[in-house]
């Protein structure tokens, strides 16, 4: 184990709640203090932000217009 391992492992654990804004103020400050000094973690945090955007965009599949018509036809007749 190098000296760096512990704080980076800790920072890795905080990645998801940090980006989800679920950390307490103290935890957030802790994560940010580490990120300020650690390019290794900063890079992986930035990657995570990009990854989330990529996943969101990758799965978009427009609904078939016929389906919309079929859904409309399920409406209660007036």
């Amino acid at each position: 184990m190098t000296l760096r391992d512990d704080p980076c492992d800790n920072c890795e654990e905080m990645l998801q709640p940090y980006l989800d804004r679920e950390l307490t103020t103290i935890e957030r400050a802790e994560a940010e203090a580490h990120l300020d000094t650690c390019e290794y973690c900063r890079r992986r945090y930035r990657f995570e932000v990009e990854l989330r955007r990529f996943v969101r965009n990758a799965v978009v599949e427009p609904m078939a217009p016929e389906l919309k018509q079929r859904l409309s036809s399920l409406r209660t007749p007036l």
């Binding site: 492992d9 890795e12 654990e13 990657f47």
Partner: peptide
């Protein structure tokens, strides 16, 4: 399912 840490993919 198997999982790894959050830095694994990068």
């Amino acid at each position: 399912p198997l999982e790894e840490g959050d830095y694994f993919l990068y």
